[in-house]
Design a protein around this nucleic acid. Sequence first.
RNA 1: GGCCUUGUGGUCAAGCGGUUAAGACGGCGCCCUCUCACGGCGCAAUCCCGGGUUCGAUUCCCGGCAAGGUCACCA
Length: 544
Amino acid sequence: MDLNKLADRLLPGDYPDLSFYEEKYPPRALPKGAEVTRLAPSPTGFIHLGNLFVAIANERIAHQSGGVYYLRIEDTDLKRKVEGAVEAVKNALRYFDIKFDEGAKIGGDETYAPWYQRERAEIYRAYAKHLIKIGRAYPCFCTEEELSALREEQTKNKEITGYYGKYAKCRDLSEEEIMKNLDEKKPFVLRLRSMGDPAHKLKFVDAIKGEIAVTENDQDVVILKSDGIPTYHFAHAIDDHLMRTTLVLRGEEWLASLPIHLELFDALGFSRPRYGHNCSLMKQDGETRRKLSKRKDPELSLEFYRKEGYFPRAVKVYMLTLLNSNFEEWYLKNPSEPLENFKFSVGKMSKSGTLFDLDKLNDISKNELARLSAEEMYDFLSAWAEEYGSEEEKAQLQAREKFLKALDLCMGTSGKKRRKDFVTASQAMQTLSYFFKLPERTDDYRFDAKTCGQIFDGFLKNYDFSDDAQVWFAKVKELAGSLGFAAEMKEYKANPDAFRGSVADVAEILRIAVTGKANTPDLYTIMQILGEEETRRRIKGAIS
RNA sequence: GGCCUUGUGGUCAAGCGGUUAAGACGGCGCCCUCUCACGGCGCAAUCCCGGGUUCGAUUCCCGGCAAGGUCACCA
């Protein structure tokens, strides 16, 4: 068979010689050891935690080695394409402080553009034509019905499914048959003529998993779909070669197709990049654990974290602690160093599936927010409210001075000890709400109305807004004593039966009256922030 | 089902032939304390199972088992 003729018939037109592309996209001039990595999402508009997870690893490796990190869009499947998705990806990653050097909607060096696979169709076809000419690709006219019938039969016979060996019907079509099909305008796909043998197992060193066994590929996979657009596998080989990627860090779900990629690189005459397959984020679901799923798990969506108001750095820190097991210890020892100073290593990435732990994230979030000044916290909350806050919350933030005082109290920014009251922006706004209006009581009075009334009356009678904290508390103690409550906790603990309760109970009743809650930071300061009028109004209102 | 990967407390995990088997989160208890938060101290809890190899296996080998991934003209 005249392969050149076949190639011209299948992919008519002039395509540049392959050396053209080699020269157009030359090896990158980078220092020794520099890694070129990428993030290559498909534009579905849904960017999730798993993307962020691998994105951070790729970013760290590129940048700490003095290499390049780029964004490529895998838009070969138009069924999945969503308008504005690329913007969404870019924005989401920027929110979490992941910076690209070049790529789609990024700008930067255009040498290796275009970054959209749809715009690279000519390149793929040129290589596909080459594969036809050297006998490594052939047209397949099988219909989807035929293919699924084949699959069914194979399944029934407990055979391996797919297009391979004797099942590859179109693999050995004669020239006449091919031409006849073409004349009849039958649609076709281009398949790889695989030379692999699954009986051959090869050792392969994965950058994360270490030495693994790979079974040679023997599937004649589709490389060009009937619309002339490449499949992922083919585009991956060509793009990562031409964009001069040195390390392909990707999710573990790709491990199964590694044999295909290996064969493709070899068939195309490309040297292979290194690969690292990282574990996916899992979630406990009843008895078993599974991959985080888009439909069932809102916490998979990055939007979830923005909406809840997680501090972006906290999410990043959590990802880093999952990504590199020694990060946490380093961070504990070097809390004020930039995160970039941590020596990230691919080899330390976890081999096994990691269960996503919201408790752990929350703990990290608390710590991260506790590092902020009141002003920084205010700015963070304002930015969050701008996008996700209610009108009421926005109005509360308008009272900046008062808000800062409340933050100062709740964060302990002017005391010796920092408080860690805040986990997320939405939770913080919720927590702070009693500074602006008396919320519904979340805790009940543990004493009868008469006792409470006595406490309110007694407090109001002696309350002087200009008292300092010591005097104020002395008065509360005095009030407690006069009503048969222990003024000193020590006395109470020594002999609880001798009192109706303690000064703690008295303070609690006042606290609930003023804030609706049994637990808050220092009540004196809260009253100072509220002002005398509001404080009195709330306590009076509590007398029923 | 085939192939691949993984298997240390509830979770994330250190470990790499001999350890009282780190640490962090969570849980529980105590202290501090007007409550909470912070902080301090402490407790409970782990090497998937079975064979080897070895003076000695969490660690090395083999075999099970379990979990996960993947088997498209989706990525």
